[in-house]
């Protein structure tokens, strides 16, 4: 055993706050919710993420809950600039390595569509293992004040075309999303993590901007 002596009063870093109060129960429920979000895309699912935590986490509760459920010691996580302060929290609770560039991340946490890296710059997966592409958790896109464009959503998981609005995604996202979908089966999947709600955009989903 390497025994370089370390004095007993030295901590490794700032003390992070507590994470999910009931890790096992919460992560099960959040995972199930995430599955539902991807299975029925572009559909807003309500969920009390706040209730999963004691003191507020340093990320929006929906983002934090998803990150703590999905990340582990093998999934490098990239944090967008507004989320940078949450590094110790994630490193402690998820044991997640922090990626310095989005292209090296298994999970990207973006605080808003403005801070979302170009989707093509993310890991697109591998022809034999397309599932190994980056998963994006995008905050700030499902807020009540969102004013994005209206999409017509269609694809696997939707019995019929669905109007998808009440989000903060604009034409730039629409353009990127079309390119993403064109590279199917490669490409990234996106979770829209809002205030008390979640929606999933799997790479197989078509989002067609609808003229208003």
């Amino acid at each position: 055993m390497p025994t370089k002596p370390i004095p007993a009063n030295q901590n490794a870093g700032p003390i992070p706050g507590p994470g999910l109060t009931d890790y096992v129960g919460a992560s099960q429920r959040v995972f199930r919710l995430a599955l539902s979000a991807m299975a029925r895309p572009a559909h807003r699912l309500d969920f009390d993420f706040d209730g999963l935590f004691g003191p507020s986490p340093p990320l929006p509760p929906s983002v934090a809950a998803l990150a703590l459920t999905l990340a582990d010691h093998l999934t490098p996580v990239w944090l967008s600039p507004s989320f940078a302060a949450a590094e110790p929290f994630l490193a402690f609770h998820a044991s997640a390595p922090i990626a310095r560039v989005p292209g090296k991340a298994a999970i990207v946490l973006a605080a808003s569509p403005k801070e979302l890296p170009e989707l093509l710059s993310l890991n697109q997966g591998d022809p034999r293992y397309p599932d190994r592409s980056t998963t994006v958790i995008l905050g700030g896109a499902l807020e009540a004040t969102s004013m994005g464009i209206t999409f017509l959503a269609t694809g696997p998981g939707l019995a019929e075309e669905t109007i998808f609005s009440d989000h903060g995604l604009g034409m730039d996202f629409a353009r990127q999303w079309e390119l993403n979908r064109a590279s199917y089966p490669l490409g990234v999947d996106v979770f829209l993590a809002g205030d008390g709600c979640l929606a999933g955009l799997p790479r197989s989903l078509a989002l067609i901007p609808k003229p208003s």
């Binding site: 055993m1 025994t3 002596p5 370390i6 004095p7 007993a8 030295q10």
Partner: peptide, 9 residues
């Protein structure tokens, strides 16, 4: 006593 030694015990 180093922290590692205490934690080991």
């Amino acid at each position: 006593m180093e922290r590692q030694r205490i934690m080991r015990a």
